[in-house]
Design a protein around this nucleic acid. Structure first.
Length: 218
DNA sequence: AAGTGTGACAACCGCGACGCG
DNA sequence: ACGCGTCGCGGTTGTCACACT
């Protein structure tokens, strides 16, 4: 097909009406032929896109609701930019619409929200580190250096024990059982901090929604 | 009021997959 | 098996409206 005489850009109402009329009669196929038969100076691709994204019946054209937003973010994280696949889970929405909505509305929100989550975790970790240095100083009369700054967060819990325990929970337990009141108090504090970071249940699948409560308020 | 920046959405483009003769 | 036309997908660009200076 020669593209020299083809129209581009925004569709006119007459073109839409013409397209609807011919797709209804001929079906959603052979777009190049359909465009010719319909007398549309558009490429088959352009006709197909226009039909699928805007003219097809049962399309929703309003704003996305919260449930749809949640689903988009969840599925995007699960499948990546598989917009057509994601679109199949949102009846009445098109891949193009979802893709645009993701880029203009959701992507930034998710990035901000994830950044804030990591900020919170790092604060807790820093707090935890400071307390651990205090306790070690008190119990052994010297301060041992923590390697938190050089450790990835995921490894940090395992590596940072001043007793070089392989399990940080053992350390917490030891603190709570073996020390005096002051240390016991600290141990409980550790436990509460520790719990917020390390009470990881492998049976539970963590995803964005487990730590993104405020995403929808942004 | 005019110029500029930004966000939202529509449409196009390139490329790979698929089906058919 | 191969070539060609068509389709589907994801990335990118164009356009418009509105906010801001």
């Amino acid at each position: 097909m020669h593209g020299g005489n083809l129209r581009k850009g925004t569709w006119l109402q007459e073109e839409d009406e013409q397209l609807i009329s011919f797709v209804t009669r001929l079906g959603e196929r052979r777009w190049d032929s359909l465009a010719k038969v319909a007398g549309l100076r558009r490429s088959g691709k352009s006709c197909r896109l226009r039909w699928l994204n805007y003219l097809r019946p049962n399309l929703k054209h309003g704003p996305f609701n919260v449930e749809e937003e949640r689903l988009i973010v969840q599925l995007q994280q699960q499948w990546g930019n598989k917009w057509s696949k994601i679109a199949r889970r949102l009846p009445g929405r098109t891949d193009n619409e979802i893709k645009n909505y993701w880029r203009t509305h959701l992507q930034k929100r998710v990035q901000v929200q994830q950044g804030e989550f990591m900020y919170e975790v790092e604060n807790l970790a820093r707090d935890f580190k400071n307390k651990s240095i205090d306790v070690v100083s008190n119990s052994e009369g010297e301060t041992k250096e923590s390697s938190i700054d050089s450790c990835p967060l995921s490894d940090w819990g395992m590596r940072n024990s001043p007793y070089h325990e392989s399990r940080i929970s053992d350390w917490i337990e030891e603190l709570q059982n073996g020390f005096g009141d002051k240390e016991m108090e600290l141990g409980q504090e550790f436990n509460s901090i520790n719990g917020s970071i390390y009470d990881y249940n492998p049976q539970q699948e963590y995803d964005t929604w487990d730590y993104s409560g405020f995403l929808w308020d942004l």
